[in-house]
Amino acid sequence: MIYYGQQSQRGHEALMVAVFCWIAFGMGAAQAASPEETIAGAARKVVKLYGAGGVRGLEAYQTGILISAEGYVVTVMSTVLDADEIDCVLDDGRRYKATLTGVDPRRELAVLRIEGEDLPSFSLQESPRVTVGTRIFAMSNLFGVAVGDERVSVQHGVVSGIVPLDARRGAYEAPYRGDVYILDCTTNNPGSPGGALVDWHGRLIGMLGKELRANASGIWLNYAMPIEEVARGYEAIQAGQAATPSDSQSPAVGMLFDALRMGVVLVPDLLDKTPPFIESIRKDSAAAKAGLRPDDLLVAVNGRAVASRTAVQQALADLAEGDPVRFVIVRDGAIVECDLGQRPSDARKP
């Protein structure tokens, strides 16, 4: 058995750390602000946004983040912004009209501008190191409960995981596929989108996303887009380079790629989740050359678990033409890996 813990070997070093800490406290050298001060400082840079909506299922409010003293605000692109006038309320109750500067449809990011000077703001230039376990505060206008000069609501938690976003809401598929921070506090609330994710030093590390369910598990996600990604979107918008929706959609979202085109005949799809057993293999196909056989059970395509026949076709569709294809199969109770060469094009051959 392997046990952890090498403290004994490092006891000496630990004692030195203790002494160092003691000296540091004694000299009053600790730099950290208290959590209360951190929150108070950060909340000044988070704004409440009011716009279109109010119809069933759509809120007319969300949250924004001040990112320059000249009044630039980043938020999530949503129907709230489909209004002639967008109201922006600071934490001291000051109310501004906001204008939409631009949007980045791929990241679903929008930039607003309010006419103010010397406004408190976060810096997009910093990118603090964030790992699983980083303690966070999530600050947002959740459920619209903060009114007038009331400060936005603050929740606390840790970054639970870092993983590419793969989510949807109903028929709407989230176009952003980059990494997000999964949070362990419940931020999938009306009004939370556009909220600020800050670390316990008060630095901006992310922006809360809109309400989405994970494609894989169906659960509502609590997540935020990392600040580096927000900064990239903001710069693209400011440079007028933000992609338009038509050329930025993920290519194969919702599409399937039939494994038959690589010579693999899967068992017929009769159940809700048909296990991806191989029924037969076409002669002289990529699958035949790779040594696949009938009754092999596919368990992963290029490292991604495939729980069903449909998942195999989705995994293949998400690859690009020419990408190497690697299957993991179970044969006679053992794992076998097979290379199938390059994925053919999406276009069907006659």
């Binding site: 006891g11 203790a18 003691w22």
Partner: peptide, 30 residues
């Protein structure tokens, strides 16, 4: 691990430090 062990030593092992931590109140809690 070392840091935490260090902190534990600081709080438990060195009794006289207790008062020091209290004096610098807010910073210790931060």
């Amino acid at each position: 691990e070392v840091w935490v062990t260090g902190l534990m030593l600081l709080c438990c092992g060195i009794g006289t430090t207790q008062s020091t931590v209290c004096v610098s109140g807010a910073r210790a809690s931060d």
